[in-house]
């Protein structure tokens, strides 16, 4: 197993928000974490990337235990977190942002090649490479944030609401980018999405998180057919 969470418990300001969840992501898999606001999805991602400490439980990546580590060492093993707020650097150029994505990499020549390839794959970014990142549209900023994560040569991507606040056309484009990344680079992805339809289209498997507990799990097909999902997340 590439990535595994075992019995994770997390407190946030005294309240238990993640109540002992376990989940797995296999090599080359897209796994989605579905749940309403406040279910504990974002908190789970923040714990994985080392921004927050768990109360108990274990997180394993490629046979290595990575809970309670600094964000730097999590990035170093190949897990990149793209938060909902994107956290690009607004007053730096698109190019500078992309280079910083590869901050911890030592293979300078490959970074250069990767940057060129990436710009070929993302013509929107190439067009605006000298522009300040903050002047991009919301969708372009999301693409930039994902592209920065790719520059880190990540093995597992943690995407938090990548389609949030985007136009329907942009949502389609982001969806295509995510599935391309998974297919062409065989990067594993743990995806949080409010847009459950999109999430189940992109994912192989999924978990449903409600008030800190996993109440349902299965393949994307099983979840799409589930009455519970239909009622609670797909509007009947």
């Amino acid at each position: 197993m590439l990535f595994e969470i075992k019995n994770l418990v997390v407190h946030y300001e005294g309240a238990e928000v993640v109540k002992g969840i376990s989940l797995e992501v296999d090599e080359g898999e897209v796994v989605t974490l579905i749940g309403s606001n406040g279910a504990g999805k974002t908190t789970t991602l923040r714990v994985i990337s080392g921004l927050k400490s768990p109360t108990s439980g274990e997180i394993w990546f490629q046979g290595q235990r990575i809970d309670r580590q600094t964000p730097q060492s999590v990035v170093k093993v190949g897990i990149i977190h793209v938060p909902q707020s994107r956290e690009i650097f607004p007053y730096m150029s698109v190019l500078e942002n992309l280079r910083l994505g590869a901050f911890l990499r030592k293979d300078k020549d490959n970074v250069k090649k990767d940057l060129e390839n990436l710009l070929e794959n993302f013509p929107r970014l190439k067009q605006r490479s000298r522009q300040q990142a903050g002047t991009l549209s919301g969708g372009e900023q999301q693409i930039l944030a994902i592209a920065c994560a790719l520059m880190a040569n990540s093995k597992l991507l943690l995407l938090d609401e990548p389609s949030c606040g985007l136009s329907p056309i942009m949502v389609q484009e982001i969806g295509k980018i995510i599935s391309d990344i998974n297919r062409q680079r065989s990067t594993s992805i743990l995806l949080i999405e409010q847009n459950v339809r999109l999430a189940l289209k992109l994912a192989h498997r999924g978990y449903v998180l409600e008030t800190g507990k996993i109440v349902l799990q299965g393949t994307a097909e099983e979840l799409t057919r589930s009455e519970h999902i239909k009622k609670a997340y797909l509007g009947g």
């Binding site: 938060p83 650097f89 901050f103």
Partner: peptide
């Protein structure tokens, strides 16, 4: 320089810098 850029980045988004592995 790489470290100079990392400094600017930390000033613009401390969390963004953390998530790129900047100490």
């Amino acid at each position: 320089t790489k470290y100079g850029q990392a400094m600017i980045a930390s000033a613009q988004s401390p969390e963004g810098a953390l998530l790129r592995g900047i100490n």
